[in-house]
Amino acid sequence: MDWLSAMSLLLGSVFANTLASLSGGGAGLLQFPLLLFLGLPFSVALATHKLASVALGLGAVVSHLKNRNIHSKVCLWIITFGSLGVVLGAHLILLIPELYAQRMLGVIILLLGVYSRLKTQLGHHEIATNRNLLGWCFGTVLIILIGIINGSLTAGSGLLVTLLLVRWFGYSYKQAVAMTMISVGLVWNALGGITILNTGVPVHWPWLPLLLLGSFIGGILGASLTHRLPNYIIKVCFEVVTLIVGLKLLI
């Protein structure tokens, strides 16, 4: 790779992962097309992106743990049940028509972003809801389904988890983004990457160090901004990213 392509790869990765860390997801629909543009085949780009995304969660964890804005039991719940879906989704992607699945996901994410925009007070403050046995059981079904999306498609699952925590359980956007980055950005992505490797899909190892560096820096930058910015700004960032991701998946 020449130096111009290398700089494009690094800066693109930093930008994509900063925005994802700030809004709770969406790095794949920014970083993944960059890998395709630079010449990687689809399956190779997917596997390479999945492995690099682990550094996004690692960078975000470093910042979020310092601020202690984490509900450890909720993170453990997301990791445990979502991981079941991640493994299943990584195998299902070989059976489901990719274009059809991406367009369906694009519609869902776009509608969630519009919903968040219409609900002006959503996620500004923590208001505990559905934190009973029935609420957690229904949430568990949704988390498994979102895990399947994470394992099978390139992006979007982090945004879905963020809005689930905000809308269904009543967490603020700051709290939801922090827990999403730890659970999805680190653990789910690591598990998805390992599962993809076990399926035999090759990784483009020469580009991985730059992507890991960009993801890690972006994770730290985005998480730091999350703690400095008010909740309504985080909410706007979430809505902008859902719009971009939703349209990208559709178009």
Rank of each mutant, 00 (worst) to 15 (best):
I143R: 09
C237F: 14
L160N: 09
R68G: 02
E98W: 15
T120A: 10
A155W: 01
V203Y: 07
G200M: 03
A155T: 05
P206A: 12
F15C: 13
N189L: 11
N17T: 05
H71E: 14
I70G: 08
G219M: 01
W188E: 02
V236I: 15
A45I: 02
V187Q: 11
T162P: 15
V161W: 10
S172E: 11
L165H: 06
L9E: 04
F169N: 07
M104H: 02
A155G: 02
W205C: 12
I233G: 09
G85L: 07
H64G: 09
A190E: 05
V87Q: 00
L58A: 06
V61H: 12
V86R: 03
A52R: 08
Q31R: 10
H91F: 14
S83F: 02
P41G: 12
Q121G: 14
G59T: 04
A223T: 02
T162M: 15
Q121W: 13
I251F: 14
V54F: 06
A27L: 09
G25M: 07
L118I: 14
L249S: 03
V74S: 14
G156V: 03
P33V: 02
S53V: 12
V61N: 10
S172V: 11
H204P: 05
L76K: 06
Y171T: 06
I96G: 14
R117Y: 14
P209L: 03
L46T: 08
L112P: 13
L30Y: 07
L95S: 13
L134D: 13
W207I: 11
L208A: 04
L159N: 09
N130D: 02
L134N: 12
I234P: 01
L225Y: 01
G39R: 05
M181I: 10
A16R: 05
L118H: 15
A223I: 01
K235L: 03
H204R: 01
L92Y: 05
M7H: 11
T48H: 04
G82S: 00
G158K: 07
G25C: 08
A16G: 07
P33Q: 00
L212Y: 11
T199F: 06
L40T: 06
A176W: 09
L11Q: 06
T154W: 13
G26Q: 03
A101E: 01
A60D: 03
S23G: 08
G12H: 02
H227W: 09
K73R: 13
W205V: 15
G106N: 11
V54M: 05
V240L: 10
Q31P: 12
A155C: 03
Q102P: 05
L58V: 08
G158Q: 08
L111A: 06
A178V: 08
I182G: 02
V141N: 01
E98H: 15
G39A: 03
A190Y: 12
E126K: 13
Y100T: 12
I196A: 06
A101M: 04
K235C: 06
F81M: 02
I109D: 05
N198D: 12
V107F: 00
G24I: 11
I233W: 12
G82Q: 00
L30C: 04
L11Y: 01
N67I: 05
V87E: 01
T199I: 07
S5D: 13
G25N: 08
A20T: 15
A16D: 02
